[in-house]
């Protein structure tokens, strides 16, 4: 448990002592801020639905940018050998690194709390969907971070790790929009696999156990996959 915490804190420091954290957070805030406020005044509605609707798409390339270095960089520099010969288990390493990525997702989301506050000044905000939206954003971030971590285990090249993770995350995000090609029976199953619908439910403020289960299982699968890949490699 303690080792997990030290892995986590080392990764967090590594994010914030280098420019990565600041660059990723700025890009995230620029993109979401621009898309959100450019249409905000047109609709004349005091809610954050557009902001949350955009999140899966933005997350599917911002979160892989956070996670791409987690394992790939260590394998590239060889420091992975030192990490795994310290008295820590592989699971502690993976969970620690995953939590650090989740910490970065939180660090990105915290400045966006300014949006609901701004909106609240302009008109009454329904805080239920906002709270739901942030919960959903966290779950989505966690699921994508687990996928990113898995991709980072596959290769020592960070760019490949980024692309693989982005493809998987984009795929999950866009899956429900391309289902009209498919027969209904198949579409039903695949629709459950798409993260869009699950996220939409939560961001409306409806917390359904099916949606929670979806994000938790995607996260679990990503981390478990990461562990299997590493065990297979060494």
């Amino acid at each position: 448990m303690r080792a997990t915490l030290y892995v986590f804190s080392r990764e967090m420091k590594s994010y914030f002592f280098s420019p990565i954290a600041y660059i990723v957070i700025s890009i995230f805030l620029l993109i979401t801020g621009w898309f959100f406020f450019s249409t905000f005044f047109i609709f004349n509605q005091a809610d954050l639905r557009n902001f949350f609707a955009l999140l899966p798409l933005v997350f599917s390339f911002v979160v892989p940018a956070i996670t791409m270095r987690l394992i790939a960089e260590e394998m590239h520099s060889g420091s992975y050998e030192i990490l795994l010969t310290l008295p820590v288990s592989l699971r502690q390493v993976i969970v620690g690194k995953f939590l650090a990525a989740l910490g970065m997702v939180c660090a990105m989301l915290i400045p966006t709390l300014a949006y609901p506050v701004t909106v609240a000044l302009l008109g009454g905000v329904d805080w239920g969907p906002v709270a739901g939206g942030y919960l959903g954003a966290l779950l989505l971030g966690a699921a994508f971070a687990a996928i990113g971590l898995f991709a980072s285990c596959l290769t020592r090249n960070q760019i490949i790790a980024f692309i693989v993770a982005t493809i998987i995350c984009f795929g999950l995000t866009l899956l429900d929009r391309i289902l009209f090609f498919l027969p209904d029976s198949l579409a039903g199953v695949l629709n459950y696999l798409a993260c869009g619908a699950h996220f939409k439910n939560i961001s409306k403020g409806i917390i359904d156990s099916r949606d929670l289960l979806y994000f938790l299982s995607v996260g679990f699968l990503g981390l478990y996959g990461a562990q299997l890949v590493m065990q297979e490699k060494y």
Binding site: S14, F17, S18, G78, S79, Y80, E81, T85
Partner: peptide, 9 residues
Amino acid sequence: PEAAPLYAD
């Protein structure tokens, strides 16, 4: 380890 691969940052 060989070549001491430490965290450079």
